[in-house]
Amino acid sequence: MSSPQFTLYAHIGPNPWKVVFLLEELGLTYKLAHVDTSKNEHKEAPYVLLNPNGRMPTLVDHHNNDFAIWESGAIMLYLIEKYDTQKKLSFEKFESEALAKQYLMFQMSGQGPYFGQAVWFEVYHPEKVPSASDRYMAEIKRIVTVLNTILEGRNWLVEDKCSYADLSFIPWMWLFDWPVMKMSNWREVPEYKNVVRWYDAMEAMECVKKTKEIRATEFKMPSS
């Protein structure tokens, strides 16, 4: 068997898995390289030679002169534009692509950073800082209600098809089902009903199920 086309440098955190959804759904071959943050591997050579920001993920395309690209949003666009020639997860129309990129940017600059701060202050920070916790919990709830408004009367963010833009929101949404976030009743909240329907439709997709399996078996889940 020939060696896989891609190496994806990953850790347990949410961002690498957006890329795995695409690799799975597009049927591309890849291997996962586990970057061990407990050993500080993400801050040292050789990893920082690939990604000067020392964050995961980074993708290397062995069929394109070992082209390396980082920032999960840029990686997703690279895979889509180069390898989704059948438009399985993207669009023919320039307008639809413009909107898909808009939602991807909203995920990258809105959902990701604020969900990240919320989980830090709710779960990881050793000391309770109520005003910071409240700030970020309020912001992530606001972001989910914005998504809910966008999804009113429609199944997907753009056209009537699941795209990379929809999938990009999934890994951070997993936080809502994580017991320590104390959000487990979110499915009953009327302001989130469209998001629940949309999220569950994606959770039922083969590429998402497979990605979750890989994440759970190959990467140690943090105890919750």
Binding site: I69, E71, G73, A74, L77, Y78, M105, S109
Partner: peptide, 16 residues
């Protein structure tokens, strides 16, 4: 692609 990654670096990292 280099431009894309630095744009995301600002919008998802520096800005927030």
């Amino acid at each position: 692609w280099d431009v894309q990654q630095w744009v995301y670096f600002q919008n998802a990292g520096v800005g927030p």
